[in-house]
Nucleic acid binder design. Sequence first.
DNA 1: ATGTGAGAGTAGCACGTGCCAGTGGCACGT
DNA 2: ACGTGCCACTGGCACGTGCTACTCTCACAT
Lengths: 329, 329
Amino acid sequence: MKDVADHLGVSRQLVSLVLRDLPGASDETRRRVRAAAEELGYHPDASARLLRGRRSFRLGVLFTMHEPFEVDLVEALLADAADRGYSLVLGPLGPGRTQQGVIADLLGQRIEGLVVLAAEGGSATLAGLPAQVPVVQLGGPRSTDPVDDVRVDSACGIRLLVEHLVELGHERIAYVTGGDGPNAAERRDAYAAEMRGRGLVPDVVDGAFTEQGGADAAGILLTRGALPTAVMAANDRAAAGMLSTLVRRGVRVPEDVSVAGFDDSSVAALPYIDLTTVRHEPRALAAQALDAVLRRIDEPDAPVVTDRDVPELIVRSSSGPRRPDVTRC
Amino acid sequence: MKDVADHLGVSRQLVSLVLRDLPGASDETRRRVRAAAEELGYHPDASARLLRGRRSFRLGVLFTMHEPFEVDLVEALLADAADRGYSLVLGPLGPGRTQQGVIADLLGQRIEGLVVLAAEGGSATLAGLPAQVPVVQLGGPRSTDPVDDVRVDSACGIRLLVEHLVELGHERIAYVTGGDGPNAAERRDAYAAEMRGRGLVPDVVDGAFTEQGGADAAGILLTRGALPTAVMAANDRAAAGMLSTLVRRGVRVPEDVSVAGFDDSSVAALPYIDLTTVRHEPRALAAQALDAVLRRIDEPDAPVVTDRDVPELIVRSSSGPRRPDVTRC
DNA sequence: ATGTGAGAGTAGCACGTGCCAGTGGCACGT
DNA sequence: ACGTGCCACTGGCACGTGCTACTCTCACAT
């Protein structure tokens, strides 16, 4: 910055004013300063700004780049945070990058708050972290600490799907679980309750929040005697794995079996998957998470809140009317 | 840091020495300093370190979180850079985050070099950037500027696949292109040359580097009279889209048609895709890219290099012997 | 003549850290 | 008694920026 100032024979402060669009410089000077900055390839130093500034307006995000829905959430967070004048410091977990290490890294970056994503998978804990920095969980539970929490209303989503399938005439509706992943137990229980509430018999198959989990569950279903007429999976990835495996084995979807997912992640919209599912709006979830963490920055001792975002039913071609019962002699 | 020092009644510098593991402090003091830092929840401020340090040991990465193979590369880069004592600043492109904006952001973060990923998709330019910071392209061309470039040897990968299919008895081998994406033309031409070199007739179908592109190409193939006995796609995503579409339409893979991809991204290994493909080792590519960018930091005027990583054939269940010709009367 | 106010620009400190140049004490050899 | 060297530790400056307080000039009204 000093180079730019010297190059024009003005003071460094004047350059600072111009580049931050503050009043106190004539139009002519503004023009010359901008031109000189461009010419010299000057870029303001974020470290120095951060060091000087009283606040950083930075938030950390802990997530996994391999989870498509987490990526959607991060992109929504990036856009929304930018609108609010905050920037995000990304903390991707991965091999060799443990939660503990990434968090230490983020804390060294002057973050004012932390958004922890755990839509699917992952099993780390946040013990003691809220004492160091305001934290909000987005998408699923990772700790038993009292932490602000934004997630999808699983019960509501399950109800929408069961309702949809029942309206199509289905009664034998199976459910593939998410194993011991986050939200898995909650969704499984919601399914069982919803089925019983309608006088139907729950049929739970163990699975996981992955394509492999769905594929394995499909294998289990196929080795049993009769297939159910509809299957719900704990998330879209499992549903996609299940659907593709069924199709490969000659089962027609939706003529023989209807399949439903959960999340409306990008995989659900693929033309050859085209999955009936429930949609969580990433922008809405992101906005709620930012509301929560910014509120906690203002009022560190506010009571813990739990927001449940209401999902929306998305009907695609993987679900259809129950197949007619075949009468065997 | 001063708080920690005051808390123990020592100087700030001593705390600094201890936390950086430098000599000049007794073991007893080390223990007490670490305990006090832990107790007060102190984390060294990266901004201040960066500001003070003569070098930043930071590299920027420009990429897209939605491309699975780019995510694999970024994870490999993260691990390898850490081993070399560098840290990465992630610059994810996305809606509302243009290449220009992200680059400006990275340049403000004191990066010493920039790795630009473009494995698939994306079509931005790096005009003039190399003058500001050392740049290396990883995975594909984004500019016509003379820039260090690390990518896969497309011709070699194509040759491996054609060879594999020919050994299985295939002669009518179609190729689904990557549209106008990076590397698309190069791979298509390599395919055509390889086919002609073996006395076979190239059969090129327009596609794209996406599932949708592969699905569309499958539609085109199905409306033509006779299917080829094998189809190669420009990347795994297109191959997955094609394969799933074919299966849905009753075509058996590999009995009726063999399918091959390109990349060995995570989608290729899914149990119900199980795609024959060529593998690019992300760790090898990442290491070469880091070699290139670090070399250019040391010698800004070194001649531009182009590294081609040799891929490896991965045979899975999507490819098999040519189906016997059916004699029709 | 003198105050008033605004516009354009400048001076200096502070942010948290790393590095260089010290300072004091202690043991040892002459 | 005195230098020499080592160990444990401390003082002060610099990094690039933002903020507050200040100066200077010019126009205009009193």
